[in-house]
Write a protein that binds this DNA or RNA. Structure first.
Length: 589
RNA sequence: GGCCCGGUAGCUCAGUUGAAUAGAGCAGCAGCCUUCUAAGCUGCGGGUCAUUGGUUUGAAUCCAAUCCGGGUCACCA
């Protein structure tokens, strides 16, 4: 059992027996470094109820704990309202000797509960950018964290492969491309299609300016611009199944998927199942029909279909256009049903940016009103946008940070730094390529995952991502140093001695022991940054230990055995923990 | 304007189910490679926790008001 829970139970037992106090909230913290002890019981919360002085209660409680748990505690002291407990060396030694060979330390057994997680959700009209990277890394990592906690995971991706935005690139390609293809231009397919999406925007703007100059008001001009009319017509034609429109659509989407696949392979993103909006929107439209029949939705005179959510504090929301075509939320209703029918997951996580908070609120409410069994399991994991120092990335201003470019830059930076340090002369070319990728990609992933997902974050493209300090490189380096020691040393010999533990040996053991609790917290909060912070803390503690104490040259055989075991367990936790962030660790660097 | 989210060191971020003197990293300064990898270690400086008031033995954390920033309220996705 985890030490904090063990302490909490021991304290709870005594409080209940000696003071008839049964409150569940016993606060236990790690003892601050400036005080003596390992864990601290905060007494304030129950001194009032017990009508005792904190000092008195602390001393009584401390004495009872020591008397009744002689194997667990070795000392205590009371300062103000804080009872500081020192956990005996025996506990930490038992822990290290028990777990040091356990490659699965921290992983929970399977619990037979299925969770779906949807992430990435690209549009097939432009390449992936920095925001998609945060999304992909988050989704992939949360899936791994759930797996470590014993859940069965189904990773899905919804390709937003149809809709007016897709038609815009298609129209622009028809008008301006002269048949250009990825092959004929040498441009990666998703980038090529993205270029025509941008071209559509430029041409549209030009046409609007012309109409406004001719006296039309701006709003009307935006709708009436010929290129916009053409895109709208194309969407109607697409939904009507017009063959040449579908042929073009398939061709261009094919280019985009080939480009995405390349990027996904590079960043290690994968999915158990990819859904396509082009397959789910029809089910959505069926559900709209059904909702009309039982009065959940209402039809306007012009044919558009709405839901009135004003009674729930929201607005009226359109679910189908007057021309009968589906809107964004139509397909999401269909998708929710499809996912549930296929996998019956109790929890279905959607990793989607916080700009869509309202959308998911509405989606869940609509699903409830339609009486869909999938409704309650819908959970929007709302993450903050990645911003530049100047604010949001904007396509129009050309400030979007492209995923492929950024990956190239990170790997180039890792290459430059590695060469500068000159420690890899004996690496083969393949090993070098591998190392550059591990460091470059790891650096980017850690940078994006170390921040609380819910919060907005700033990325400064002027400064390359750091490879020092609170970074993946720091943790990878600690791992490589451990592996270097373990390569040179045979397995740990010697018995369970090693006491008394030196402060840094104990600090390392304390940190290692927290790993399962950290995984549990990261899972419950759906927050990889909890894990990232922990791994950094652990690596930092290890580096201090490493600088202070020799493993190979330990004073006694027992000490050497203990330190080797600490090294083994630290390596396991760093490797497994980093892997759950989607980051690999090198044997040498 | 309605609703939602945020404001902590020069910068990027932890800490927000109330608890000891508010923590990291970067940047800055000073040390440390005859010893398992210096992508490291050790130390120093740096704070009106947006502001004001309130609740409490105790507030960055809870409440109220104000200021500032962002998102959203599309027949875009």
């Amino acid at each position: 059992m985890e030490i904090i829970r063990e302490i909490r139970q021991a304290v709870g037992r005594i409080l209940q027996r000696d003071y008839a106090f049964t409150d569940e909230t016993i606060l236990i913290n790690a003892t601050k470094p400036e005080f003596e002890g390992d864990y601290t019981v905060v007494l304030f919360s129950f001194v009032k109820a017990l009508k005792k002085k904190p000092e008195e209660l602390g001393n009584e409680l401390g004495a009872a704990l020591l008397r009744e748990n002689a194997a667990l505690f070795s000392a205590f002291n009371v300062i103000k309202g804080f009872l500081n407990l020192t956990v005996s060396d025996g506990f930490w030694l038992d822990f290290v000797y028990r777990e040091s060979d356990n490659q699965d330390f921290g992983r929970s057994p399977r619990r037979g509960s299925r969770v779906m997680i949807e992430y990435s959700s690209p549009n097939t009209n432009k390449p992936l950018h920095l925001g998609h990277l945060r999304n992909n890394f988050l989704g992939w990592s949360i899936a791994e964290i759930y797996k470590a906690n014993g859940y069965d995971i189904v990773k899905t991706c919804i390709a937003n492969d149809r809709g007016i935005h897709i038609c815009k690139s298609m129209i622009a390609w028809q008008l301006f491309a002269n048949g250009a293809t990825p092959e004929s231009t040498g441009i990666k397919g998703d980038h090529l299609v993205g270029d025509y999406y941008v071209l559509f925007g430029n041409e549209h703007k030009k046409q609007v300016a012309g109409l406004v100059a001719a006296g039309m008001d701006k709003d009307t001009a935006e709708k009436e611009a010929p290129i916009m009319k053409a895109a709208q017509q194309m969407l109607v034609d697409w939904e009507a199944g017009k063959p040449e429109v579908h042929a073009l659509w398939k061709k261009m989407n094919g280019w985009v998927y080939a480009g995405f696949d390349e990027t996904y392979r590079r960043i290690g993103s994968d999915f158990d199942k990819t859904y396509y909006e082009s397959n789910t929107y029809l089910l959505g439209k069926e559900l709209v029909e059904r909702g009309l029949e039982n009065g959940v939705f209402e039809k306007e005179a012009d044919g558009s279909v709405w839901i009135d959510l004003t009674a729930d504090g929201l607005d009226r929301k359109i679910v189908q256009r007057k021309d009968g075509t589906a809107v964004y939320i139509t397909q999401d209703i269909g998708l929710a049903v499809k996912k549930y029918e296929e996998f019956h997951a109790g929890l279905s996580i959607y990793v989607v940016g916080d700009e869509q908070n309202y959308h998911f609120k509405v989606l869940k409410l609509i699903c409830r009103k339609l009486g869909l069994p999938s409704a309650d399991g819908i959970f929007h994991l709302s993450y903050g946008m990645v911003e530049l120092p100047t604010g949001r990335m904007k396509t129009r201003e050309g400030t979007v940070v492209d995923a492929d470019d950024l990956l190239d830059e990170m790997i180039a930076e890792a290459t430059r730094k590695t060469k500068e340090l000159g420690k890899t002369e004996d690496f083969s070319l393949d090993e070098l390529e591998e190392l550059y990728r591990i460091i470059g990609l790891g650096g980017l992933k850690f940078f994006l995952l170390r921040v609380d997902p819910k919060k907005r974050m700033v990325f400064n493209p002027e400064e390359s991502i750091d490879l020092h300090g609170y970074t993946a490189t720091f943790i990878q380096y600690a791992y490589a140093r451990i592996r270097s020691i373990l390569r040179k040393e045979a397995g740990p010999a010697g018995g369970a001695a090693g006491s008394p533990l030196l402060p840094l040996e104990k600090a390392l053991a304390i940190n290692l022991e927290r790993f399962p609790a950290v995984l549990d917290q990261a899972c419950q909060e759906m927050n990889p940054s909890v894990l990232a912070a922990y791994l950094f803390e652990l690596a930092k503690t290890y580096n201090s230990f490493y600088a202070e104490h020799s493993v190979s040259g330990a004073e006694t055989a027992e000490k050497k055995a203990l330190r080797l075991r600490l090294c083994m367990l630290t390596a396991t936790v760093l490797r497994n923990g980093m892997n759950m962030l989607g980051i690999r660790v090198p044997e040498r660097m």
